[in-house]
Write a protein that binds this DNA or RNA. Structure first.
Lengths: 147, 147
DNA sequence: TCTTGAACCTCTAGTTGCTAGAGACATTAG
DNA sequence: CTAATGTCTCTAGCAACTAGAGGTTCAAGA
């Protein structure tokens, strides 16, 4: 049986995060020692490693919840798993696209910076005047989502 | 003079967001009509357009605050502006890198999915077992930040 | 056995950048 | 004049944690 600290050390998930995962019921309520401290066995360790890995891949906690409940049904088709993973992939792809647009715009701004006074600074100028963008009217879609 | 709704329409920033920006003092307190409604002139419109544009490029509100206060000092050197923009660029670049790693991993997982039962699903298997990653021990750094 | 210090407990509140909703007042078109 | 739309303030919520206060438990050394 592992204490929460050992579990944290062996999964790379921080202690308060583990407690948080329990609170939102992503992890089951832990067994307790005589002194009320949480104790974990192999199954929670596996579950947490799964969560950690999926988080690293950018899955939301909601998606992970779905993946976990699917993984408890070994005889079902894995089509639903595929759907979740493909959705994640396409989100990652669209973020890469958007970020690449931003990168180009930022580079362009920086190259044109005179290095002189702020009054002549292209960075400030471009930020203040949308029409100076690469593609005039809808140059950047809007940078919102996570990752 | 513009009402908040017109300002929102002409900048593409939503009404509650404008009020929020005022609340966090990114925008100055607006003048009010006889009936206590906010009224805006050109200078706030410009400022808000600047903010919107910078947000679209992924700058944080804190960075924007700095940029705005710099842009009020036209005779200073634009070195500080350059630093902020370069920092933003390097953040964007590192996010692209990380996302590209994730994309490769997700694609690899998906290609190997047999389309059969969950028990045989590579997606679930890879998520559960870190050692199945491309680069065995530290395959993905950790996906945390925004954008 | 006692003691010290690390690790653990619960609880609340903060982070970022908004968004949603309730309930009331203002403005404007017909 | 009335109805519809717009605006006001206020509070609470979102994701996914993180930080801190104030207290308890455990393990190792003297």
């Amino acid at each position: 049986m592992l204490t929460i600290g050992k579990l944290a050390a062996s999964t790379g998930v921080k202690v308060p995060t583990i407690r948080y995962y329990e609170q939102i019921e992503l992890l089951p309520e832990a067994d307790r020692s005589a002194g009320n401290q949480r104790l974990y066995g192999q199954s929670t360790l596996d579950r947490l490693a799964f969560i950690r890995h999926a988080r690293d891949l950018g899955f939301t906690l909601d998606a992970i919840r779905d993946l976990l409940s699917l993984s408890d049904q070994p005889n079902h088709s894995c089509a639903a798993v595929d759907v979740i993973a493909r959705k994640q992939l396409s989100e990652v792809e669209s973020r890469i696209l958007r970020l690449t647009t931003l990168k180009i715009e930022l580079e362009r701004m920086l190259i044109q910076c005179s290095g002189g006074r702020i009054a002549d600074c292209r960075v400030i100028e471009v930020l203040g005047d949308h029409s100076l963008c690469v593609s005039s009217d809808h140059c950047h879609p809007k940078a919102e989502a996570t990752l």
